[in-house]
């Protein structure tokens, strides 16, 4: 593995609620190398978004808090970093694309303004220069008539176009890491492919690393080099993408892969799409042993007694399962 750009070490982001502590992220570790695409997969509520937002410290505190762990960005731990220093990293070094393009743009400013804002802040550009920069960015993300559209408001754009604008905002300052939090979930299927292709193009152009958060295994297979599978606030498996699809070791990963719809399912003898039975355990009082045990068909007593550690099973392939 080449030099690590971002290293998350045993991160615990917990939320204080009236019912007690919700352990949304409970001891997660992962690394991203320069220029690499890492996919983080898992179902809703498994802690992938909280992990991503923790990196940019976009968690509301309170109720959230960093209980333990480190987020090391280019040799520097971000958790104790003061807000002013954090603001110098945001957008300029680490940027984020959000899930919901309909709500992640401010309705009262033109898209040009919103792209130009970070250029003005981080590169000290004048108003005119920054708007020119915004036009450049809109051209890069392939918005037609960029010179004219730069003065339009978000409500004048369609969902896919807005997501292009969100990507333009994120890439305006040429960050080294782009965190894409389910960037295609809210979009039409045809638009999804366009947005993923655009992200690929941008990566080829700027060479930034991407942390791609998704629950769609198809997106993972096509875009990532390495995959981290999360379940109930924990990492359960980590492997290069071919290895993960070819030789999934964790029963949860196996279930995720089997739940991908296949056109040839009927001829292969599976009439119905497979599902993983049961639901994610409560993160208020997580079970003592393996968190997947109550949904796992291989679970035995040792699984329920103690938590399986993440262990190396092949080069670059780690799994948190005793089987």
């Amino acid at each position: 593995m080449t030099e690590a750009l971002l290293e998350i070490k045993d991160l615990k982001t917990w939320f204080k609620t009236d019912d007690g502590m919700v352990r949304a992220v409970d001891g997660v570790s992962m690394t991203i190398a320069r220029g690499e695409t890492l996919a983080v997969v898992g179902e809703s509520g498994c802690g992938k978004t909280v992990t991503a937002r923790s990196v940019l410290k976009l968690i509301d505190m309170p109720p959230g808090r960093f209980e333990a762990g480190q987020i090391v960005w280019r040799g520097r731990d971000l958790i104790p970093l003061p807000a002013a220093d954090m603001d110098k990293i945001r957008a300029r070094e680490i940027a984020m694309v959000f899930q919901e393009p309909m709500t992640s743009l401010n309705p009262v400013y033109t898209v040009g303004d919103q792209i130009a804002e970070s250029l003005r802040t981080h590169h000290g550009l004048s108003r005119k220069e920054s708007i020119d920069g915004a036009v450049e960015m809109l051209k890069l993300v392939q918005i037609p008539n960029a010179e004219r559209r730069v003065h339009d408001y978000p409500h004048q754009f369609s969902g896919g176009m807005r997501q292009r604008v969100v990507i333009a905002i994120a890439l305006a300052c040429k960050p080294q890491l782009l965190i894409a939090d389910e960037p295609t979930t809210a979009l039409d299927v045809t638009i999804q492919a366009q947005i993923l292709e655009l992200l690929g193009d941008m990566k080829a152009k700027f060479g930034m690393a991407i942390m791609l958060i998704t629950h769609a295994m198809g997106v993972v297979a096509e875009n990532a080099q390495r995959v981290v599978v999360m379940y109930a606030g924990k990492v359960v498996e980590e492997a290069p993408v071919e290895e993960l699809f070819g030789n999934p070791r964790h029963p949860y990963t196996q279930g995720l892969i089997r739940s991908i719809p296949r056109v040839d399912a009927r001829t292969r003898g599976h009439a119905r799409l497979e599902q993983i039975p049961g639901t994610v355990p409560s993160l208020l009082n997580p079970p003592a042993g393996c968190r997947f045990a109550n949904r796992c068909r291989f679970a035995t007593d040792p699984c329920r007694d103690s938590e399986p550690p993440l262990r190396q099973v092949a080069p670059n392939h780690k799994v948190a399962c005793i089987l």
């Binding site: 940019l56 954090m86 957008a91 919901e100 919103q114 802040t121 905002i169």
Partner: peptide
């Protein structure tokens, strides 16, 4: 609490600007 305020925060423009502008 809205999403675009989080977007604004992620731009690193500083909390006072996030509040006054967005």
């Amino acid at each position: 609490k809205l999403d675009y305020v989080t977007t604004a925060r992620s731009k690193g423009i500083g909390e006072p600007k996030v509040v006054t502008r967005h």
